[in-house]
Design a binder for these strands. Structure first.
Lengths: 128, 128
DNA sequence: ACGAATCGTCTACATACGTAGTCATAACGG
DNA sequence: CCGTTATGACTACGTATGTAGACGATTCGT
């Protein structure tokens, strides 16, 4: 049972920004990724190139040669990443229980009325 | 309005384990902290000492001389830390909206029946 | 009062991360 | 066909982090 490709290597904060760009649209060339993130994060091309290489090394994104350049596309699903990160947080801070997290967000008024409405809807849906 | 003491410096994963020990009970000496975490994380005393120093530098824990040794106690509330981390996650992965996080946890069946019941109770309480 | 145990500080070092420069090469424009 | 340009690979470097050893001071036991 070989280790899952994307299991061991964590995606860092900066790398995550690149992943978001690729999740939003892919495949993209390095230059196109830069177009989408360099301004916001105040990065230069070399930075994006490095992050892309590291993500390729971590097998989080794959490359396909296209003409003279590479096109990059995510190899892991955003929902998997998001789910993993959420689970890690819940495990680490709330003993694996989601209710306390929810309680915390509620207490901090981090929940908007819309959030509440949506969550109620979800609950109703799950009940069925 | 001077920068909040504990605002800038992030607490790392290893440091967090030490914080948990201190939140569970404090004040503690370095040796007592080690008693509570060294076994589980397979650390040696020097490691705990280093982590404690770094936490002191970050003003996340405070020291009070007690006899010949120091007693360490948390300077930041666990609820503040937990709240901050939760918020960071929600901001980074869910655009600041808690509902999608909740949806994700629900979808992944990361929510037990107990969780659901608790959350419903919380919702009812908030509505009042 | 003196040696042994203990404690905090300083130092160390490997890896990860954030950020960026250099360079050879390959392709495109003219 | 050749120079320009864009691209990926390699290198670089400072800081954060994980982990721990060395050491000097201090205090406790006897």
């Amino acid at each position: 049972m070989a280790r899952q490709d994307n299991a061991g290597d964590r995606i860092s904060e900066a790398e995550h920004a690149v992943m978001e760009a690729l999740w939003e649209r892919s495949p993209l060339s390095a230059a196109e990724v830069c177009d989408r993130v360099c301004a916001e994060r105040d990065w230069s091309m070399p930075t994006v190139k490095t992050l892309l290489s590291r993500l390729v090394a971590k097998e989080a994104v794959g490359t396909k040669p296209h003409g003279r350049k590479f096109l990059y596309r995510p190899l892991i699903e955003r929902s998997d990443y998001v789910g993993g990160e959420s689970r890690r947080l819940v495990d680490r801070l709330f003993g694996g229980r989601a209710a306390p997290l929810f309680a915390h967000l509620a207490q901090e008024e981090a929940l908007t009325d819309d959030d509440l409405a949506e969550i109620e809807a979800l609950l109703r849906e799950m009940r069925r």
